[in-house]
């Protein structure tokens, strides 16, 4: 009799779980994360990072937020974004780079498999214009990806960007240059990229491929984590296979790489 009830309990439990999973899936599109069948996935070796996202793929047609703390971390962030973008543009897509103080050097994008002539740089004077241009380009479905260097953005503005991409399915990357002024936003993810010492095989001297500590600080309905990634031969390469789903406070980068 008891065994019977436990069995029923179990079936109710599994039913509940299935139901919950189903409901969770139904919520995802409402939160700006699209069913992967509707978009093509980024296929450039993100590997274990994909598992951190709902549906197990990098969310396209969404706005991603990157926190940068200085010129060096900004370079690392733009490198990582360039790597992601090269997977999105599908050879012929157009990337729009919006900035108020641009230092990005077009020539270098060739190293990330993006033809530099396919990037349209929009250099503005006012922060307000930059936000308007980012929103306007995100609305345009002829663009593959939009990168915006934005200092300040409040929740409503980020919500506007998210609404724009939900219609047009453009992928947006917002780099927040002022880490101190980060406020809650409606973006799907928040990342932080830091440079790491590169390594060449057999301890050869010299500077190797770009290597980063990629931290996924926030992801809606996914599991935040941190990974070490390298960009080589036109794709990302995971350096340590283990997935760190532990909370970020326990990751002490400096100790591990000092």
């Amino acid at each position: 009799m008891q065994a019977n009830t436990s069995h029923i309990d179990q079936s109710i439990d599994s039913d509940k779980k299935a139901l919950l999973a189903q409901l969770q899936k139904a919520i995802l599109p409402l939160q700006g994360i699209r069913n992967p069948l509707q978009t093509h996935a980024v296929e450039n070796g993100l590997g274990a990072i994909n598992d951190a996202f709902p549906n197990g793929t990098f969310p396209l047609g969404a706005v991603h937020e990157f926190v940068s703390t200085g010129a060096e971390s900004f370079a690392a962030t733009s490198g990582f974004i360039a790597g992601l973008t090269s997977g999105i543009i599908n050879n012929n897509g157009i990337v729009v780079w919006v900035s108020t103080s641009r230092t990005a050097f077009p020539l270098a994008f060739q190293h990330f498999d993006i033809a530099p002539e396919k990037i349209i740089f929009i250099d503005l004077k006012k922060e307000k214009d930059a936000l308007w241009v980012v929103e306007e380009t995100l609305k345009c479905e002829h663009v593959a990806a939009v990168v915006g260097e934005i200092q300040q953005m409040d929740f409503n503005q980020s919500r506007r960007l998210q609404l724009a991409v939900e219609k047009s399915r453009v992928t947006g990357f917002i780099i927040r240059k002022d880490a101190k002024k980060i406020t809650p936003s409606a973006c799907v993810t928040r990342w932080q990229i830091q440079s790491l010492s590169s390594e060449l095989p057999n301890n050869m001297p010299g500077v190797g491929f770009p290597r980063w500590q990629v931290e996924l600080l926030k992801v809606r309905n996914g599991k935040p984590g941190a990974w070490t990634i390298e960009w080589s031969a036109g794709q990302f390469r995971m350096i340590e296979k283990e997935l760190q789903t532990v909370s970020l406070s326990t990751i002490q980068t400096k100790e591990r790489y000092a």
Binding site: I94, I120, E136
Partner: peptide
């Protein structure tokens, strides 16, 4: 793309959009 550029140029004025 051309239409997008026109819209942006119409709003913020010429000389802001670059391609290399």
């Amino acid at each position: 793309i051309a239409e997008l550029i026109d819209r942006i140029e119409g709003k913020i004025g010429p000389g802001h959009i670059h391609r290399y």
